[in-house]
Design a protein around this nucleic acid. Structure first.
Lengths: 220, 220
DNA sequence: GAACTTCCTGACACCACCTTGACGCGCTTC
DNA sequence: GAAGCGCGTCAAGGTGGTGTCAGGAAGTTC
């Protein structure tokens, strides 16, 4: 969040923090570029009327090394300014005064877009095997392990809820469908198969743990 | 370009065509969705006040199968409308009346962004063949291999997602269109053709791998 | 208008996967 | 201590997904 007007910085910080964002602030272009390089933000909100650098210079300075979404704030309504900022590399341009709801929505849109690009950070590791949720791959001691669709469906849910208990009903409904909520036998068969393929000692599972009567838990 | 007001469509068509864009137009939501499925646009400009469908319905209809950038046009200034459209999956929201310069700049920004997403290394190499995504060419042992448009469409998606599993549904929707999401037979035929042209042992594919029940994977 | 390419469709064999049943074990309950 | 329940294991049958081949329709080029 880059702005030289303290009240705007303050308002945004409160709103963003309340929604679970962590916020880095800078009050001029130079510190903004430095802070961005160190903090690796997921999105940049940039006011154009900074005391030291011109808005397009800040944008260019960021675009030199990152494709992080940049949302420009500005009091200038003139379309020339908008075109300049957007062509310099900004992703969006919001004119002051702006509604907080709108800015937040544009923020969400920008983050959503870049989340699609990255995507690859979905790797869950345990002592004996690795689950790559984006590529749908499982490796054990470096070699790829082949899983059937049903096996993968189960493992994916457990891995996405790693550390948490997942109810039998939830697993059955999400993998087999709502009509199969009581076929707990399926779970026993497929959990056994997963353990045989992934656990060092299938008879004494360390990562795919049964919680009797309740469900299963993935322990990373 | 989706709008029910002829004069706006006309103005935009002239401006965009003059700048080298090729323009598809639709005057309501239903035809827009159909045209998008067939035409595979690089960016969608969508007016919200359509006669048949609600704006968010059109956005949802597109987002069901594509991540194409959507720029919303609307006469409504209310921030609730903006938030709704953006959260439904729109990338940008421009209120009427708008400056043509600004819209064009936002268009450029949207296209630039999605170009980055697609980007990546333009050349993908395997032990037995090379895919040049920029030039749309495939070479095997130095000599160029001719692919049909459909074959190339499949190979391109797989190559851009190299290493990752691509679902059957995604391949079908992106190559043949949303209506063909269940024609898995097409995939079998065309994957067989690609393997015959590219794999050293078509019967035992090493790079165009099937994951039964789930999809296909390109292994570099 | 003929030759060619490309796409779609159908038939068939094969194999992996899902489902289902039977059985043994350990824990809780009475 | 017996009975019942939940869980893990193993094996077998059926079926649905996959690869392959070939023929015809539609469109393109010369």
């Amino acid at each position: 969040m880059v702005d030289d007007e303290p009240q705007i910085v303050r308002a945004l910080r409160i709103n963003l923090s309340a929604r679970g964002y962590s916020v880095l602030t800078a009050h001029d272009g130079t510190t903004a570029l430095k802070a961005a390089a160190e903090g690796k933000p997921d999105v940049v909100v940039l006011d154009l009327g900074l005391p030291d650098l011109d808005g397009t210079e800040v944008i260019a300075g960021l675009r030199g090394w990152t494709t992080v979404p940049i949302i420009v704030l500005s009091a200038r309504v003139d379309s020339v300014d908008k075109v300049e900022a957007l062509d310099a590399g900004a992703d969006d341009y919001v004119t002051k005064p702006f509604g907080m709801d709108e800015l937040l929505a544009r923020l969400r849109a920008a983050v959503r877009r870049s989340a699609v690009v990255e995507g690859g950070d979905a790797i869950v590791e345990t002592a004996s095997f690795t689950v790559d949720l984006a590529a749908k791959k499982v490796r054990r001691d470096g070699v790829e392990v082949h899983l059937t669709p049903t096996e993968w469906g189960l493992l994916e849910i457990l891995a996405r809820n790693r550390g948490r208990l997942v109810a039998q009903k939830q697993l059955l409904q999400e993998v087999w469908g709502p009509a199969y909520a009581k076929e707990t036998h399926y779970l026993r068969v497929y959990l056994a198969q997963l353990r045989r393929k992934l656990e060092p000692e299938p008879a004494h599972p360390r990562h795919l743990v049964t919680e009797p009567g309740m469900g299963y838990r993935f322990e990373p």
